[in-house]
């Protein structure tokens, strides 16, 4: 065996770079299985809800926060919800699996990588998945002329990544400390699905009974949906947009910090 030069004090970027081959291997193995949920399902929603149901809604003359049609109204909402679901899918079973079943992380932590490096690289992969899934979605909807603002749509692309992280990091932290996967089914039922349905993706939250309208404001997805809609439809309300960014950014930041903490405890006990 020859001796080779290895950076003895690698920086953060180099430590992430060292994990790229692992994640490429993972993606090569899993991309086929994710094609339908990542790239096809969203369009089934667009057709079923936007085009077919939308025909009924539009003829009813509903008020849709300034959107020209029901299809244009729900398109940004579906994109934002897709960001949430993609991120959730990548940070529940895969994280617990890497600790418990595949033992990926247990091997990694015996190398120069730290739990923070492991978390960051995994979240990098989540960003990649959200970016490709939502990027393709935005692009196709944009080409079909559903969005009025090109710049807004480009910004909305980055908002999807923010939404992905706002959900992905707290879920990552939660999964990293879990002993078994039973709670995942509960999370899907009591968190992901209700948020999906009631966060303003399908109808304005002002349509909710007053007593629970404020609940929608607590929903991170509502912040994401509203921000995406403002940007793509060119109806930006500056202060409100800023609030959305702050809420999502705070969740992502706190979730990231919590993820590192929980994974460190899990792996280095």
């Amino acid at each position: 065996m020859t001796s080779v030069h290895v950076d003895p004090a690698p920086g953060r970027i180099e430590r992430l770079n060292r994990q790229v081959d692992y994640w490429v291997t993972v993606y090569k193995r899993t991309w086929r299985g994710s094609v339908i949920s990542s790239f096809l399902m969203p369009f089934l929603y667009v057709v079923a809800m936007g085009v077919l149901l939308g025909g009924l809604v539009d003829s009813g003359g509903a008020s849709l926060d300034g959107a020209p049609s029901y299809l244009a109204y729900i398109a940004p909402g579906l994109v934002a919800a897709h960001a949430m679901q993609t991120a959730a899918g990548e940070t529940m079973y895969p994280v617990l699996g890497a600790v418990k079943w595949n033992k990926t992380y247990l091997g990694m932590v015996a190398t120069p990588l730290t739990p923070a490096d492991i978390v960051t690289a995994h979240l990098g992969f989540v960003v990649f998945r959200v970016a490709t899934a939502c990027g393709a979605f935005l692009l196709v909807l944009g080409v079909f002329g559903l969005f009025t603002s090109v710049l807004g749509t480009v910004l909305a692309f980055f908002v999807q990544i923010l939404i992905g992280l706002a959900f992905g990091t707290p879920l990552y932290a939660y999964s990293a400390g879990l002993k078994d996967p039973t709670p995942f089914a509960v999370i899907f039922r009591v968190l992901i699905m209700p948020l999906f349905l009631f966060s303003g993706a399908f109808f304005p939250v002002s349509n909710l009974p007053d007593a629970i309208e404020w609940l929608a404001w607590l929903s991170p997805l509502w912040h994401g949906v509203d921000l995406t809609r403002m940007l793509t439809l060119g109806t930006v309300d500056g202060p409100l947009a800023l609030l959305h960014v702050v809420v999502l950014g705070t969740l992502a930041g706190v979730g990231y910090w919590w993820s590192i903490r929980r994974l460190t405890r899990r792996l280095m006990h």
Partner: peptide
């Protein structure tokens, strides 16, 4: 993949 973690 493991060797890559060491920067090889």
């Amino acid at each position: 993949v493991y060797g890559r973690y060491f920067g090889l």
